[in-house]
């Protein structure tokens, strides 16, 4: 029997539970030489702010054991260009489109989500967790009060399903997830990158121009899994798990911990086919194990 790979998150149907993660997939056009976007459950587009952002000075990238650091700093063309230039290229692409909305103030978050009303965007992922910007970003996601303020302000101004992306660089991620849920978040995604750094012993200077950057890749997977487990046990809205997923087995683990879907990020940098391999591997596993639907995996390890 064919496995039903569909999952539903906040009223949006994804054809499968694999979504490409924001910041790792541009605006959806960089991997179309390898497979069509329609293979994916969804695409989280590059983090966008109301005004254009240049991003941070280079070097922006450093390699780490089983991971990497980045300090891109939300380089993006701004909300207007996103809506008028990037989104039209994606019409009819056959997958769920998620805008990753970032900001440096409550007003800039609100201004951006208002721009997204009436567009082809299916869902908004509110980015309150970027570690690479001086204002806003992680500052809002670091406390329950900050997270609640942004979610409350945005919730009142958008009709789109709202997912909030959380930072792992906090003392108690569960209380922040609950604060977002209480203010009307329709879903929670986690984790954004872990703050880290490296030093070049030849130059005796930090590798990254900004000294610190966000750690991603397989190195962070166990931390991400643990946090998804904790948050999924504490909120009743759907949780989307991400952080270091590179194989279908990782995606299955993440869903067993309580995720309704997963996002795949850094893995695409070293294997362009990673998201597709994960979809195919998961489907074969579900069929082998006699599951009727992918959604049956969600939280199975908690029972």
């Amino acid at each position: 029997m064919k496995v039903d790979m569909r999952v539903n998150i906040a009223g949006v149907t994804f054809k499968n539970p694999v979504i490409t993660a924001s910041g790792c997939y541009g605006f959806g056009g960089d991997y179309t030489d390898f497979y069509p976007l329609s293979r994916l459950g969804g695409v989280c587009l590059k983090g966008t702010t109301l005004e254009p952002r240049q991003g941070n000075p280079p070097p922006r990238i450093a390699e780490t054991p089983m991971g990497m650091l980045n300090s891109v700093g939300l380089q993006n063309p701004g909300g207007h260009a996103f809506v008028t230039e990037e989104l039209p290229r994606l019409t009819g692409c056959g997958t769920v489109l998620i805008a990753n909305a970032a900001g440096s103030s409550i007003e800039s978050y609100v201004g951006l989500v208002e721009l997204l009303e009436g567009t082809a965007i299916d869902m908004i992922e509110l980015n309150i967790s970027c570690p690479n910007v001086k204002e806003g970003g992680m500052a809002f996601g670091a406390t329950c009060e900050g997270a609640a303020r942004v979610v409350r302000a945005v919730r009142g101004r958008t009709t789109k399903p709202l997912m909030v992306k959380l930072s792992p660089n906090v003392t108690d991620i569960v209380s922040i997830a609950k604060a977002c849920e209480a203010e009307g978040a329709d879903a929670i995604s986690l984790i954004n990158t872990l703050l880290g750094m490296r030093i070049d012993i030849k130059t005796r200077r930090p590798v990254l121009n900004q000294v610190m950057g966000g750690l991603s890749g397989p190195a962070v997977f166990p931390v991400a899994l643990r946090m998804v487990w904790q948050v999924a046990g504490a909120v009743s809205v759907p949780v989307v798990g991400l952080g270091g997923i590179e194989k279908w087995q990782d995606a299955v683990e993440m869903m067993m911990a309580g995720a309704a879907a997963v996002q795949v990020g850094t893995a695409s940098f070293y294997d362009v086919y990673a998201p597709v391999r994960i979809i195919e591997g998961m489907e074969a596993y579900l069929e082998r194990e006699g599951f009727g639907a992918a959604s049956q995996l969600t939280g199975i390890a908690r029972k």
Binding site: P57, P58, R60, I61, V72, F269, V272
Partner: peptide, 24 residues
């Protein structure tokens, strides 16, 4: 220093002079 190689991650930025000034 580069990650994806295809333009998706915006890691390998270099400053370039354009009509709008210096951009990455």
């Amino acid at each position: 220093r580069m990650a994806c190689g295809v333009g998706a991650c915006l890691g390998c930025a270099v400053p370039i002079l354009t009509a709008e000034g210096v951009v990455y």
